[in-house]
Design a binder for these strands. Structure first.
Lengths: 236, 236, 236, 236
DNA sequence: TATGAATGAGTTTTCATTCAT
DNA sequence: AATGAATGAAAACTCATTCAT
């Protein structure tokens, strides 16, 4: 919410934003209409609202209010509340998969690669709470909105390829067991990284311990890496 | 209302109430004036609706319609939509913890006990999707409703005690490593059992594989037991 | 409200109530059914609720809750919410007129009698806020409920007779002017005594001075007596 | 909402707004999009309903029906039933105080000024029954809504200033007694003017005489002026 | 491209009253 | 005489969306 309202008054900081600079280049101090910026602004606010309140809990009015524009524009660009929600999903899912490709674990030793993958997954979930929440929300709705996000399925294959590659190389070197399914392993890693973020509130009130607390963060990270490596390693 | 919710619990005692006995005598299962049955009926329907639609998505009218009573009774007994939602949470959280106590893992060998605990946790989540969904929904609302459920915090301690006991005995016999935190371990087990149920829809559409499919079920169960045991076992 | 709940548990004081004593006389420690007491109890609570909330603002449930009985009894004895309201009016109007007759101003010198009447009127309104509020409420409803209170009209004639008598005697002695209408004079006295009680809340917030404050009470009393006497006195 | 209520006031300036001018040009009095008119219309209808039925007795639907708009707009502009009620209070209290300032009693001889003030007060209450009823209603609610009307307290000081001025000048000329408190005097004048309007129904049924009848009106007006002047005049 | 006003259908909640025991 | 459960009709309020400017 604060983030949202901050975004609405960047001109008070004195620091010219990207778009402001672009404006300046073209010679006008304040562009009146900037569709891209407007859309981006709406999406940002919507991401927060949807991830905070859920699809049904989110209020179109609430989103519009924290936006630089009006409600009408929201419909102009995204057609409907659901359309906006889908746009948010699209953006958010795009981000994580894009990052995963930058990992280059294929250049690492299998064990190190596996560790890097787990740590990346951990860090991503730990930081991108909006993503975690939105996935959660999607599941409440039976994933029927991501299904319509065209780019969704393709993107997920890459992780599996990464894991397949790691497993194959680890088996070859005798470091990893050979009876593992890559998708199952991905599920395992996801589980460990996701749950502590997604359900941190109930966990926190149940055990008086917030799993997202910085002190626990490091311990959990190490624990999860440890658990996964123990799981994939070949017994000797 | 307090009187109401208290009165709602005696059915768990197994001792039939006076009215229940009177019913039995007459042989009719559906009496017109049966507050306990009315409440139970409302709670059941509400559990389904809330877990299917979320707190904001659920419709009081929809719940009432599928009930033997009218919408009015829902307010009569539970005060408000939120009150009903909380009653559902209370019931659902009560169920799992009650079952956990029936496990009697303290009578088993540490490794067997740990396996039994993991298998129980797995099975419970696998079967009680409503529970999983409701926890998810609670987390979207920052757990603010479960916080108000008085019995909630106390109930959760028991799992931790069970794990503490298992760990202590396993350490004593040299089977388990001694550097584990029981709450962290509980989090790990929960993660593995929860995620595959709670996020099965996005997982399903992402990888074309429904993790709740019976064939995968057994494999996941074994995998999770395996992973946890590898994690807690002492290296030699 | 406090008064109400206190009335509901008089047995905790240890001081036997009138009815309890009556019970004792008859030899049973606690009478189970006492229709008169029940009715009285309901009326008392209803008087408070109606005077505090108005006819439309009052809640039958709220009244029933603060009663020793249940809502059903309220309908049993008074038929409806309106019936109960009327019963309250009847009781409350009966009280003031009964008291007025005890004044015996006819035995006093006209000026002293007038002063006594004004002081009595002042004191009554000052103390019986419930009465004042109920009159106010009745006027919002166009007095349509008092109209149905049979004893209502007759009761009011007595005040006018009292004033007529005072005026006549005062005129005879040359103390009072002869051009006054008794009903108008009654209206004037009522106005001065009623307004400061009935509208004390708006008056209080408007001028930061609560006209029902004890310190102001005496001043207002003297002022009103003064004003009335100056008004009725014959100029010389 | 703030923007809305601010925008609602410029019509008192007498300067026609742009849209009003545009209207005039086209010659149509009822435009489809005219927020000011919409708000004014709602307020007018609401004033009647609230004053006739009280806050709890008033029906939002009933107000909406007699409006040119729908119920929704009522919430759009005033937020809630209570919000609308408060807006009504604000308007109605504003009116009387505004008029009082137009009296210019400071230019009159103290006795004439006092008479003018009393007559004004009398006439206002006699005509503005809605105002009287609403004040009555507010007092049933302990003035808690008027308390929240920001402009309320400030407005009331002006009457007191007027009275202070009159008293000071009257004392200086030797026409008025010097022992009077201006707020008490205001209370007295209000009492006399308010009661006969506010409680005319019970008074009417009690004494078979409607104090608001035109024939009584003049007599009461003279009587009250007389009473007040006798009260403030210095004895000689 | 942008805006603020407007809307209808729906959603939660309340309330006086009655029924079965 | 007394009770707590039950009820239907109505009331307040909300929400995604569209219209006029």
């Amino acid at each position: 919410m604060k983030k949202g309202s901050k975004a609405a008054e960047p001109d008070t900081t004195g620091i010219p934003s990207d778009t402001a600079r672009a404006d300046a280049r073209r010679g006008d101090t304040r562009r009146k209409y900037d569709p891209e910026q407007t859309k981006r602004n709406i999406l940002e606010v919507a991401t927060q609202e949807f991830s905070a309140m859920g699809l049904t809990g989110a209020r179109v009015d609430a989103i519009a209010e924290r936006t630089n524009t009006t409600k009408r524009m929201l419909y102009y660009y995204f057609g409907s509340k659901e359309g906006l929600y889908q746009a948010v999903l699209e953006k958010v899912y795009g981000d994580i998969r894009a990052l995963e490709q930058d990992l280059h674990v294929s250049e690492l030793d299998p064990v190190d690669g596996m560790q890097a993958l787990v740590e990346f997954t951990f860090d991503y979930h730990d930081r991108q709470r909006d993503f975690v929440r939105l996935v959660t929300i999607e599941n409440i709705h039976g994933a029927k909105y991501v299904e319509q996000v065209k780019t969704f399925k393709g993107r997920n294959v890459t992780v599996i390829h990464t894991i397949e590659d790691l497993l194959a190389r680890g088996i070859a070197t005798g470091q990893f067991r050979s009876d593992l399914d890559p998708i199952d392993l991905h599920l395992m890693i996801s589980s460990l990284c996701f749950h502590r973020v997604g359900n941190r509130h109930t966990f926190g009130t149940a055990f008086g311990r917030d799993p997202s607390h910085p002190r626990l963060r490091a311990r959990h990270r190490a624990m999860i890496v440890d658990a996964v490596l123990r799981f994939v390693r070949k017994d000797d």
